[in-house]
């Protein structure tokens, strides 16, 4: 038994010690207290609408959300859900937002490429016609599609928020390449760009700053988006709200999932109690 305890202790020590040595790496994302967290979490609809506005006015000029259709915006728990319009296809909000977009299509009479106003069935159009165009406009970097972004990054919405606010002035001694931006939450290895003055290059690797370079310039600036509900459009607020919106984009069924889960677990717990009582009753006279 002592052997076992020693081994477990050693394993735990390894587990806790391992993250400390990750060379370079990134800062751990800041924890935002989002309303959708926890088993009883719900999306804050006003926050989703603000986040949608930030996405539309800032992010959408480079980033696509290929999996999101306009009708999704009016589903239950979505930014523009309204219980008067249980069918999202009939939602005036979704229709208005869609109609404002220009969707590339083919004229059914002539076969010519045209642009037409969007319908609720359309997906939010990609800002670039193809990948080469996207790379060409962004210094060779491809802005990732944001449809499942909070599932595709450790830290989820907290990471999105942290990345958007995480552009400090680069520390002295860090050479930032042209067209690149230093972000302390972006995973990378900066050791080859790190040459602090007065430090022996042999020892410089011990003080490499956390973070990495990315091709996205700091996207948010104070007052960039005017929120309709009067929320001050600070970088902090905009980053937090767009993080919530992208969480919805990634998991539009998040709230439905948690609500179903609560019911399932309550049901199974009661069922387990009932079956346990049956078990005790059936086995009551049987030695085992």
């Amino acid at each position: 038994m002592r052997k076992l305890i020693t081994a477990v202790a050693a394993a735990v020590a390894c587990l806790t010690a391992a993250p400390a040595l990750a060379a370079g790496g990134a800062e751990h994302p800041k924890d935002v207290k989002y309303s959708f967290e926890g088993p009883f979490g719900r999306f804050d609809q006003a926050q989703l609408q603000r986040g949608f506005k930030v996405y539309q006015e800032v992010c959408a000029s480079c980033h696509s959300t290929n999996l999101v259709a306009y009708r999704h915006l009016a589903m239950r728990n979505a930014p523009f859900w309204d219980e008067n319009y249980p069918n999202p296809n009939e939602s005036p909000y979704a229709r208005t937002i869609a109609a404002a977009a220009q969707i590339p299509d083919i004229d059914s009479e002539t076969g010519d490429a045209i642009l037409r106003p969007g319908t609720v069935a359309d997906r939010i159009p990609n800002p670039y016609p193809n990948e080469a165009a996207a790379r060409g406009a962004n210094g060779g970097a491809l802005p990732p599609d944001l449809s499942v972004i909070t599932k595709a990054r450790h830290g989820g919405a907290d990471y999105i928020y942290s990345l958007l606010i995480g552009y400090p002035n680069p520390p002295r001694g860090l050479t930032v390449p042209a067209g690149q931006y230093y972000n302390k939450y972006y995973a990378g290895d900066l050791s080859s760009y790190w040459a602090p003055a007065g430090v022996d290059p042999e020892e410089a690797h011990e003080s490499v700053p956390k973070g990495g370079f990315l091709a996205m310039p700091p996207p948010l600036r104070e007052g960039q988006v005017t929120f309709d509900d009067g929320t001050p459009s600070t970088v902090n607020n905009m980053a937090r709200d767009v993080g919530a919106y992208l969480q919805w984009v990634t998991e539009p069924k998040l709230i439905e999932r948690k609500q179903t889960g609560l019911a399932v677990i309550i049901y199974l717990t009661l069922f387990a109690g009932l079956v346990y009582a049956s078990y005790r009753r059936i086995w009551r006279n049987v030695a085992h």
Partner: peptide, 9 residues
């Protein structure tokens, strides 16, 4: 129940 905790939460 344990399975559900993973699936739903």
């Amino acid at each position: 129940i344990m399975f559900s905790v993973f699936v739903f939460f």
